Amino acid sequence: MSKQLVKLRIRPSRNGRKFTYFLDYQIENGKRQRMTLGHANKRNAQRQRDQKERELRMGIIAPKSMRLRDFLEDSLDRTGKQIRESTHDECRYAMNHLIEVVGNIDYQKITLKHGELFRQKCLDKGNSPATVTKKLSHLKRMFQLAVNRKQLDENPLQHIAMPKVTKKKVEKYTADETNRIVRAAKDSQTALKWDMLIITALCTGMRRSELLNCTWPDIDFEDMTIEVSPKKSTDYTWEWLIKDTDRRTLPLTNNVLQMLAGHQSQQPEGYPYVFVPPARYDHIQQLRKQGKWTLKDASQKVISNFSGTFDKILKRAGVRKRTFHCLRNTALTNWFANGMNEHD
Rank of each mutant, 00 (worst) to 15 (best):
M1W: 05
M1L: 04
M1C: 03
K3P: 00
P12I: 07
P12C: 05
P12F: 14
N15M: 10
F19V: 04
T20R: 09
T20P: 00
Y21D: 08
Y25Q: 09
Y25F: 15
Q26H: 13
Q26S: 12
I27T: 07
K31I: 09
Q33E: 04
Q33C: 06
H39F: 14
H39C: 07
A40S: 14
N41V: 05
K42P: 06
A45K: 02
A45C: 11
Q46E: 15
R47H: 11
Q48H: 08
E55P: 01
E55Q: 10
L56D: 03
I60G: 01
I60T: 08
A62N: 11
A62R: 11
L68G: 02
F71M: 04
D77S: 12
Q82K: 15
E85C: 08
S86W: 04
S86V: 08
S86L: 07
H88E: 11
D89E: 13
C91V: 02
R92G: 01
Y93L: 12
Y93A: 09
L98K: 01
E100L: 06
N104S: 12
N104I: 01
Q108H: 11
K113S: 03
R119K: 15
C122R: 07
S128G: 03
S128I: 10
P129A: 12
T131V: 07
T131Y: 06
K134R: 15
K135P: 00
L136S: 02
L136N: 00
S137A: 15
S137T: 15
H138K: 12
L139S: 00
L145G: 04
V147Q: 01
R149I: 01
E154I: 03
A161I: 10
M162D: 01
V165F: 01
V165P: 02
V165T: 13
K167S: 15
E171H: 13
K172L: 14
T174W: 06
T174R: 10
E177D: 08
E177N: 06
N179I: 11
R183S: 12
R183L: 13
A184F: 04
Q189H: 13
T190Q: 12
L197M: 12
I199D: 05
I199H: 06
T200N: 03
M206D: 03
E210C: 07
L211Q: 07
L212N: 09
C214V: 05
P217L: 08
D220G: 10
F221T: 09
F221P: 04
F221V: 09
E227W: 06
S233E: 13
T234G: 12
D235F: 09
Y236G: 06
T237A: 11
L241M: 14
K243C: 11
K243F: 13
L250W: 04
N254E: 10
N255F: 05
N255R: 06
Q264S: 07
Y273L: 02
F275M: 03
V276M: 09
A279I: 14
I284V: 14
Q285Y: 03
Q286C: 10
K289S: 06
L295R: 09
S299K: 08
K301I: 02
K301E: 09
V302S: 00
V302E: 02
V302R: 00
I303Q: 00
S304M: 08
F310M: 02
D311A: 14
D311F: 08
L314N: 04
L314M: 14
K315V: 09
V319L: 05
V319H: 01
T323K: 03
H325C: 07
C326M: 05
L327V: 07
L332A: 13
L332Q: 04
L332K: 06
N334C: 03
N338S: 14
D344N: 15
